[in-house]
Each structure stands twice: as C-alpha cells, then as structure tokens.
Design a protein around this nucleic acid. Sequence first.
DNA 1: TCAAAAGTGTTCAAGATACACCCATGA
DNA 2: TCATGGGTGTATCTTGAACACTTTTGA
Lengths: 232, 232
Amino acid sequence: MKIEKQYYKEHPTFHVAVDSIIFGFDQGELKLLIHKRQFEPAKGEWSLFGGFVQKDESLDEAASRILFELTGLNNIYMEELQTYGEVDRDPAGRVISVAYYALIPAKEFSEATSSQYGATWVSLKDLPPLIMDHNVMVAKGLRRLKRRATSQPIGFELLQGEFTMPQLQALYEAIYQSELDKRNFRKKILAMDVLIKLETKDKSSSRKGAFHYRFDQKKYEKLVDGGYIFTI
Amino acid sequence: MKIEKQYYKEHPTFHVAVDSIIFGFDQGELKLLIHKRQFEPAKGEWSLFGGFVQKDESLDEAASRILFELTGLNNIYMEELQTYGEVDRDPAGRVISVAYYALIPAKEFSEATSSQYGATWVSLKDLPPLIMDHNVMVAKGLRRLKRRATSQPIGFELLQGEFTMPQLQALYEAIYQSELDKRNFRKKILAMDVLIKLETKDKSSSRKGAFHYRFDQKKYEKLVDGGYIFTI
DNA sequence: TCAAAAGTGTTCAAGATACACCCATGA
DNA sequence: TCATGGGTGTATCTTGAACACTTTTGA
C-alpha cells in the first residue's frame, strides 16, 4: 500500500461538484428547476442545483443527496450526463463538475418549489442566463432528453402514477416541440403494450373526461430484458 | 475572492483520472488497445490507458495527452463517455475516473503498438479481465460505439483516408457483429451522398479490385449543420 | 479458363404518415 | 342544446429486407 500511495500523491487533487439538470412537465410545458445561488462567486444569479461531492459518497449518491437537500424529493430518476473540466470554468478556482440529468414526476412537481432555497420552475422557452457553463449543460441535457424520448418510454418517468393519453401526448409534444397526430400517437403507445387502462377518468380538462392509464413496470422490464427496443 | 475560497475549502478534493477505451479496426475485427499496468496496485495486470489529470489541463486535454504519451498518436477522435466515482472503485484510494472513448484510424493502427509501453491490440471477442471497473467501461464504450454507428458516419473515423466499400462494410459488420447485405449496404451508404468515388482501386483483396472512396468532410458538415440525421 | 471478390436492381412486407368524423358530458 | 375535448379506422407512402446473377482479372 505504500508504493501506490506515494505514486498517487505525486498528482494533484480537485474539488468535484455535481450539477443537476432537473426537468419537469407542467401545464403543457417542459420546465427546468433552477435557483438563485447561495454563495459567492455569482451569488444571487440563476444556477442549476449543485454541490460538492463528499469523501464518503459516490457521484450518484452526491447527486441524489443534493437533490434531496434542496427540494425534499427522493427516489428521482437521475443519470449522469457529462463531466465538465475546463480549467477556468469556475472563476473562483478549479472545479470539475459532473452534470446529472433528472426527471421529476408531475405529481411531485409543486412540492419541488416549496423549498426554502427558492427553487423555481422556468419554462425552457424563456430560460434566463445561468452562471458559468450551466446553459451549455442544459442544452446538452435537452438533447439527451429528446434522444431518450425516442428510444425509451421516458415519458412515464415524468408522468409517474396515473395519467391520460392527452397528457402523455402533450408531454411528448413538449419534448419534441412539435405537434403529433393523436390517432397515430395512441396507436404507437398502445402497440408497445406496457400500459394498463384504468376504469377511472380525469375530468379536469374536458366534460367527457379522459381515461387514466398506468405504466406496467413489470411488463416493461420483461420486455427490456428480452432485448426489446422502444421507439416512440 | 475570500468568501468563496473559504467556502470551497470546506470541501474535500479528489484525484481525478482519465481512462480511454480505444477502438481500432484491423483484419475484419474490432479491437481494443490495452496494456499492462506500470504501477501498483495491480501492476502487470491488463488495463485501459489512463493517467491522472494535472492542474493546468482540462479533461479533454488530459485524455489527448495521455493517449499521445502512451501511443505517440495525435489528433485522434475522442469523446467523454462516462465518469466513474464509486467510493471504493480503486483499492488504493479514492480516485474519480473519467472514461473517454476513442477511435484509431486503420492507417495508424500499427503505429499504436510500437510504443515502449507494451500497448497491445486485443480482439473484443476475447477480451481478458481488466483491472478494477475497466471491463464495465469497455462494455459501455461498445454500446456507445454501436449507437453512434447507427446515427453518425462514425465508420469514417475508423477508416480515415481512402477505403473501399467492402472494407467499410466489414467495419460495420464488426461493430454490429452481424452480416449485412452488400447491395442494401451500398445503397444506404451512397444515398447519404457524402462519399467521393475515386478512380483508383484497391487490389489487395481481389483480382478485380475495389474502388477507393473518400469521405467528403465538407459536404458532411453542411448536411449536419442543416439538421440532417444520418442513419446507417 | 476459372476461381474469387466486386458490383448491380427489383420485389415485397412492414411501419409511418395523413386524414375526418362521432361520442360523452356539464354548463 | 351546444361547445369542448376524447376517442376511433383506413388508405397511401416510405423504408427496410430479401434475394441471384454478371463482371473483372491474375494466376
């Protein structure tokens, strides 16, 4: 253990941060969760949610912890997006930042904003300038979201629990920023055969009401294990 | 500058390494460049090419530098793949590793092995066990390569310069590990309209000889800028 | 002259797209 | 009763998949 320690010690160490691109979906719009930075530099400016990795946690754990601390949300779908390591990306010192991308289910949407840290959902259409390279991270996150959406039923992550076909369609329209034909959309989604149609209806947006659906997690996992690739 | 420095200093720092998954293509096979580790722990075991990030370089720069130092190759296509940060992934201490994926053009293939560091090309079919989580990294790199290959003319990175249709097809067959119909393959590739057919022939593999092609970089960039998505 | 790889078109099936009307309901 | 959003089927086009023979040439 001595030789290696010595060899490792010849090399520098760095602060490692995690920044999360948190997408949500509300009122027909795709949104991003941001807040005003609590510390210098750039205190008070718009920023992604982030924080420093600690000694006893993995990167994934750090991302989850920070999301929980700042929004109270747990068990959120997160995945690593990209690591940013330009020498001068942070004016206050060398920080290597691992960007994560996360999807907040609609039902937890409002809870996320009740935090003490001033979390705010902003529409992606009018995203303000963010600190440092955070706008670059968001652009990359959006690209990933779009790609994911074409090959995985990612929509279900954003709409956990019960949802209606028109809601699911609106979500995909928000992601692609284009309109879809509702007959073709239904056909494709139902052809995947991973939805359970419920007896209940959602009447919040029409007199007739739209049937609730639920995502059949077990069926989905079976298909994926069997090598099935979703295309939406 | 004082407040922030103080805030940053409350947080731990980490060794940050770069490990490269280097793909090459030779004799109809997809290969990976590895070597025997030069230092403890796990000295002498098979490992990806890697090293520690230094103070004055970005992650991308570190990856390029390390590739150059260990193989003498420059200007190689590299992109970040994923960052690995499990607490105990390195038995000798906490190291966060950024995995890169790289494609070595066929014509530089043999030069890569002439290094003093014992670089060796191994077929992906019989990959030996690698140290730590390097096998996981390779698996992820392979998935990325396959996906990239379906949506970008990545083959041209691996076959830089002049190549023939049969060579290009062999490359895609190696990536997908399945056989392709040569008529359909030609049709698709030529439909992309980014290849220049040359007058010369490669006669190394048949009496008749196969025409050389070259990738039309400018045409390709124009198409991509115009939003075109390649599908192979 | 023949062996060995290069080169070439057409048919068919499946999947994607375009498109218009009836239904249920509460106000 | 009517305005509003929910729900449904068919025809057409596009795309990918399957498939066999001719050409060139050096040995």
